[in-house]
Amino acid sequence: MEGPKILFTIPYLNINVTETVVDTWLVMAVVTILCIWLTHGLEIVPRTKRQLAAEKLVSMVNNMVLNTMGHRYISFAPYIAALFATSMIGSLSSLIGLRPLTADFSTTLAWALLAFIMIQGNNIRLNGIGGWLKGFLDPVPFMLPLNLVSEIANPISMSFRHFGNIAAGMVITSLLYSALAALSSFILGWIPNEFVASIPLFQLGLPAILSIYFDVFTSFLQAYIICMLTMVYVSGVDSRE
């Protein structure tokens, strides 16, 4: 396994553009086109399946945000939907041979830092700067280092979780492919015929079964988890109700 390849360098600025960046733009284009296709020509009484699907998706995200964060935070729904779509399509892009963009720590760290900024921002908005700073001395001033560490550990654990799951899936899939290739060349290698020896006997079909777990299930689960964690942490600093 290697890190993302550097595809080209922006001249004069010396910024390396890696595979991850290009894949992220592709995923963003796919999500945008999907949204435009789903929402063009909406009608009051839906007639097309396309509009029904769009309404179902929107109400699903709205319900998720309502149930987890409460009605005050319904304006978070677009962000959560965007995060979910980008994370899931980005992880699933490994199915068509791209390097999944969430297997790059930078991507997940960016999402976790966004969540961190939103958590602290929401805390300051609700309690004021004085209340926010005082919160670190809760319940006794002695706890200050522990509170600081637990705040900083939040984005680290969030980003490592997403990155680790997808990267582990990628490593295991590539190990599996090479192991299956070795196995089929070992078994068919006894036959002195070049065509027979080159048949990918075990690589056919078998990886798909494991791919269902490591790529499809994990992608969906991790997208769900990072959205849930963002919602829980952001609304967690709100003690009203």
Binding site: S157, I225, L229
Partner: peptide, 16 residues
Amino acid sequence: LFGCAVAESTGIYGLV
């Protein structure tokens, strides 16, 4: 699933 994913983080640290 949510609890499992949170409980997983120590294992993920080892993996990283």
